[in-house]
Design a protein around this nucleic acid. Structure first.
Lengths: 213, 213
DNA sequence: TGTACATCAGTGAACGCGCGTTCACTGATGTAC
DNA sequence: TGTACATCAGTGAACGCGCGTTCACTGATGTAC
């Protein structure tokens, strides 16, 4: 859709960090038009480099997409963490834990709304993120979106807000509900929905999860 | 992925019902590999016709895809109707209505599981199916998947199993939960799930909806 | 400190592919007289 | 019942496009002596 944006210029022969630059370019493409828009040639073009240069850093187009996908997941996790940080501590531990789970869901929906392309890239590209384990970022291991949810649910159990026997698999219930709403709104038949509508339906979905889990 | 399967042969110059044949071919492509696989040229190839012949019946590739998408929705509706038909009447009107809503969800998941390509084609191609109104089929108007759900929820209200004030928008809650599970399992990070696992998680999601709506 | 050389990041040119779509055509059909 | 003609479904050939990927290369860097 969008034409080549960045005028490719470079002083040095070596690029510096081409790998990083390609991922960033791919991220922009994904942001604008979703995972299918992560086109190897376009990424190199925007980086001011010849197409095959990418093969020094990625085995093929798919490897690049994979890297972009992880990055998108990391960004999603950041949005969720921001929402989590907004939750103010409550004396009632159960209520607080509950609020945190809601915040995870809210952050997820928020990310879907504001970064539709990245959302699709993060969550509909075949990647194994089912583990609770996280994502590398500058060396540290941090929990991904799924990990944050799992953690919040664990906290609910600790706070006595969720019976232990209901805990296993609870991630899936939460995730399904919220993910479903997100995709229906993004690519599905609910695209016409306004921000307010989404917010209110979002709350209702979270209510349902809260009551039903 | 799949090579050209059908050897193109035709006795008459005129095809008979090329439009129908192209839709059917497109449906096969969608069944095998999802909406992106609905490729105009391949559809004509399988129909034993020259590529541009398609333009007598469809304005462009997208029109064909749209037609295939509707057809896929119709098939989804049929699966759901089959599940609905299996629900045996209950003296308790409320319980029966409840069971019918569950059946709608179950049919949806069932379709997603057995026809992943068609499922994606039906529900992730931009189409306005938000109306409760249905789909043309041999002249008759029949409710689509969404319509069946709406109807089942209406019945719940009538049976007193759902407070009227909770009715508006309830479709979205149900649909989100079930659709989310379906897409997570299909293209998302839960692809490894076995049939049994899916069935049991499916039940739990339906429980959640049941309790939470 | 200076030179020889291995390393490897980025280049230049090209490949084969399949796609959607357009053009001017030809062949079979159905209708009017 | 038979012929002239309009209609339009399907043909044949071609277009431009952008993609992923491969090849043999050249230029800058860093290390060993």
């Amino acid at each position: 859709v969008a034409a080549t944006v960045t005028p490719p210029k470079r002083a040095t022969y070596r690029h510096g960090d081409l790998r990083r630059a390609l991922i960033d370019a791919g991220l922009e493409l994904a942001r604008a038009d979703g995972p299918d828009a992560v086109v190897l040639r376009e990424a190199t073009r925007r980086t001011g480099v010849v197409p095959n240069a990418a093969y020094r850093h990625f085995a093929d187009r798919n490897s690049l997409l994979q890297a972009v996908c992880w990055e998108a997941q990391r960004l999603a996790a950041e949005t969720i963490e921001a929402k989590l940080a907004e939750v103010e501590p409550d004396e009632d531990a159960a209520a607080w834990a509950r609020a945190r789970v809601r915040a995870v869901g809210g952050g997820y929906l928020c990310f879907a709304r504001h970064e539709p392309g990245l959302f699709l890239t993060a969550f509909s590209v075949p990647t194994d993120m089912s583990g609770i384990t996280g994502i590398d970022e500058e060396g540290k291991r941090r929990p991904g979106p799924f990990g944050l949810l799992a953690q919040a649910l664990d906290d609910m159990v600790l706070a006595g807000a969720l019976p232990v026997e209901r805990r296993p698999g609870a991630e899936l219930l939460c995730w399904s509900a919220v993910h479903g709403l997100a995709t229906l709104v993004l690519e599905g038949p609910l695209r016409a929905m306004s921000d307010e509508e989404l917010a209110s339906v979002g709350e209702r979905v979270l209510d349902m999860v809260d009551r039903g889990v």
